[in-house]
Nucleic acid binder design. Structure first.
Length: 522
RNA sequence: GGAUCCUUAGCUUAGUUGGUAGAGCAUCUGACUCUUAAUCAGAGGGUCGUCGGUUCGAAUCCGACAGGAUCCA
C-alpha cells in the first residue's frame, strides 16, 4: 500500500499501516466523520484545576495529538497536545473495558502511535507525582497517523533528543515543524498578533481597510522586477503587483481620506535572509497629512506594539537592549552619510578627496567612491542614477549603525519618484525611512500629488530604464489621470510586516516568519 | 550569478592515510494497573542525496547533477 509512486515505505510506516488494518478489522473507524465535542483545552485545565474544585472537572472532553506514550502494561500514560499545550492522560484498561471485553484495549489502545489524534472523556485529578491529569473513562480514535513524527524528548538535565535541526525539513514540512516545535508555533501566533494590533490601531483612528488588485496591467509603486502572467480573458500580459501604492492613492483621489491594506507583494528577485519574492507590506495613506504627522503616528504605533507584546518598551535584540520609547531620533540621510565619511577619513579608511559634503559631489565622484571604496562593479554602477548611488553609499556606510529606532529623512529627489519635493530643502523630498537593528522597517512620504511633476518624474525613470536599470518604474498614465482630477495633500507609509515580525520575534531569517517560505520543488 | 560548507535508519548523529556501517531517541516482541527521558530482557531497520569515474575494493578520493545553509554580487 503506497500513496505515491517511487517511495518505499519505511519499516515504521509499514507497522502503522498494519495497525490501521487491525483497528479497522476490530470495527473502529480510524477517520470518523462525527463531531467530537471539546469542552476543555489542555492549558486551561493544567492552569486552573485544583482538588477544591474537582466537581467542575468531572466530565471533561479533550481532543489532541498523542505526543508521548508511557506503556505500563494494563495502564498507559499518554500526553496529548491540543492547540493550547499538553495534557497527561491516565488510561486504565479496566476503566475502559468495564464489562470485561478487552477489544477496545487490544484492538485500539494498543495500536495507538505517537502522532495519532484522539478524543477522550473523563475526570481531572492529580497523580501521585503531582501532575494534573485526565483520568480517561472513554477514548476514541479521531485520526490515525501513518507517518512517524520526530517528537522532541527532553530529559531531566535538559538534554534534547530528536529535535529537528535541518532547516529544510522545517520549511518544507512546516506542518510537522508546527506540531513538534512550540517555538515555531509561537512565532506565527506572534505574527498574527502583530497584524491584529496594527489593524486595530488603524481602525480605532478611523482608517478604512481596502482591497486592491493583485494582478495589475502596469506593475507600479516600486522599483522591482515583476512576475509576468498571461491574462487569457483579456488577451494581454498582466503582472503580479510589486506594490499597491498607486491604487491606494487612486482611492484618496476618490475621496476616502484614510485607507490601508496588508498587501502581499511579489518581486521577481533574489531571496536571502531578509528577502522572499512573496512578502507582506502594510501600506496606509492619509489625506491632509504630511510626513511629519506620519512619523509621529508610526512611532506611536511601534512603541505601543512593542509595549503590548512585551509589556515594556526596552527589549533585547541579539544580545543588546534596544529602546522603542517614542520619540525616535530623526537624522537627515545626507548628514548621516557626511558624518560617516568624516569618521572614515579620520580613521584612515578613505582618502581626504571625499571630505567634501556628499551633496556637492558630482556623479563621477559618486561613481568613483562606489568603485574604489565600496568595490562595486563599474558595469553595475553605470546603470544607476544619482539617487541610487547615494542610496548605495548610505547602505554600505550607515545602515548598520542605526540599531535603536531612527528615522532617516529627506532623501534626494531622484531616488524617490513618488515623493513630494521638500517644502524648504532644495533637491530633496519629504521622505523618511525607519531603521531598526540596522534594517529598513518602514518607508514614507509626503506623497507627490502634482500631476505635472509626477509626469516628469516618470520620464526620469524611463531614462534610467533606457540606461539599463531594470528596476526603474513604469509610466502609469491612468494614475496620472487620477492625479489630474486632484489628490489632496497626503501622507503615505509602507511597513515591512515580515521584517517587523523578524525583529519582534528575534528571528534571523525571513523564512522563519513565513509559514510556507519558497523552496525549489522536490 | 560567484565562493565556501552540508546531505549516513523516522529524527539527531559517529565513522580515524579507501577494507561491504556504529550509537541515542523512535520502532517491534515480552514483563509490569500512578509513570514522567519509566524500567528490565530481546529484536528488526541503512543501494551512506543521484549518476559517473579511479581502484582488487569507495560513506570515505575525483567529476557532474540535485537539494539546502552561510557569505558575497
Amino acid at each position: 500500500m503506497r500513496l505515491s509512486d517511487g517511495e518505499r515505505l519505511s519499516d515504521q510506516e509499514e507497522v502503522r499501516r498494519n495497525k490501521l488494518t487491525q483497528i479497522i478489522s476490530c470495527g473502529y473507524n480510524p477517520y470518523p466523520a462525527d463531531e467530537f465535542l471539546v469542552t476543555h483545552f489542555s492549558h486551561d485545565i493544567t492552569t486552573t484545576y485544583s482538588d477544591a474544585i474537582q466537581e467542575q472537572y468531572k466530565n471533561v472532553h479533550v481532543a489532541g495529538r498523542i505526543m508521548s506514550i508511557n506503556d505500563r502494561g494494563k495502564v498507559v500514560f499518554l500526553k496529548i497536545q491540543d492547540s493550547k499545550g499538553l495534557l497527561q492522560l491516565y488510561v486504565r484498561r479496566d476503566d475502559l473495558c468495564k464489562d470485561g471485553d478487552t477489544k477496545l484495549w487490544s484492538g485500539l489502545v494498543q495500536n495507538l502511535d505517537l502522532g495519532d489524534i484522539i478524543g477522550v472523556k473523563g475526570f481531572v485529578f492529580i497523580t501521585k507525582t503531582g501532575e494534573i491529569s485526565l483520568h480517561v473513562e472513554s477514548l476514541q480514535l479521531l485520526t490515525k497517523s501513518l507517518k512517524p513524527l520526530p517528537v522532541v524528548k527532553r530529559d531531566a538535565e535538559g538534554h534534547v533528543f530528536d529535535e529537528v535541526t535541518n532547516p529544510e525539513f522545517k520549511y518544507r514540512q512546516r506542518y510537522a515543524d508546527l506540531v513538534i516545535n512550540p517555538d515555531s508555533r509561537n512565532v506565527f501566533i506572534l505574527r498574527t498578533r502583530i497584524i491584529q494590533f496594527i489593524r486595530d490601531f488603524l481602525n480605532q483612528r478611523g482608517a478604512l481597510e481596502v482591497e486592491t488588485p493583485v494582478l495589475q496591467s502596469i506593475p507600479g509603486g516600486a522599483n522591482a522586477r515583476p512576475f509576468v502572467t498571461d491574462y487569457n480573458a483579456l488577451n494581454t500580459k498582466f503582472y503580479l503587483r510589486i506594490a499597491n501604492e498607486l491604487y491606494l492613492k487612486r482611492l484618496i483621489v476618490g475621496g476616502f481620506d484614510w485607507v490601508y491594506e496588508f498587501s502581499r507583494n511579489f518581486r521577481n528577485e533574489g531571496m536571502d535572509k531578509t528577502h522572499n519574492p512573496e512578502f507582506t507590506i502594510l501600506e496606509s495613506y492619509t489625506a491632509y497629512k504630511d510626513y511629519y504627522w506620519m512619523m509621529n503616528l508610526i512611532e506611536q504605533l511601534i512603541e505601543q506594539l512593542v509595549l503590548t507584546l512585551h509589556g515594556k518598551t526596552d527589549i533585547e535584540l541579539q544580545g543588546r537592549v534596544v529602546s522603542f520609547k517614542a520619540p525616535f531620533k530623526r537624522v537627515a540621510i545626507l548628514d548621516a552619510i557626511n558624518k560617516a565619511l568624516l569618521t572614515g577619513i579620520q580613521g584612515g579608511k578613505f582618502s581626504a578627496d571625499f571630505s567634501e559634503p556628499i551633496e556637492l559631489w558630482d556623479n563621477s565622484k559618486l561613481a568613483l567612491f562606489c568603485t574604489t571604496v565600496l568595490h562595486i562593479a563599474p558595469v553595475k554602477i553605470n546603470t544607476l542614477g544619482r539617487g541610487k548611488l547615494i542610496d548605495t553609499i548610505f547602505g554600505e556606510l550607515c545602515e548598520a549603525d542605526f540599531v535603536t529606532p531612527t528615522f532617516i529623512i529627506d532623501h534626494p529627489v531622484d531616488m524617490s519618484p513618488l515623493a513630494k519635493k521638500h517644502r524648504l530643502k532644495k533637491d530633496l523630498v519629504e521622505r523618511f525611512e525607519l531603521y531598526v537593528n540596522g534594517k529598513e522597517l518602514a518607508n514614507a512620504y509626503s506623497e507627490l500629488n502634482d500631476p505635472i511633476d509626477q509626469y516628469k518624474r516618470f520620464g526620469e525613470q524611463l531614462q534610467l530604464s533606457a540606461k539599463g536599470d531594470d528596476e526603474a518604474m513604469y509610466l502609469d498614465s491612468d494614475f496620472l489621470r487620477a492625479l489630474e482630477y486632484g489628490m489632496p495633500p497626503t501622507a503615505g507609509v509602507g511597513i515591512g510586516i515580515d521584517r517587523l515580525c523578524m525583529l519582534l520575534s528575534n528571528q534571523a531569517s525571513i523564512k522563519d516568519v513565513l509559514l510556507f517560505p519558497h523552496l525549489k520543488p522536490e
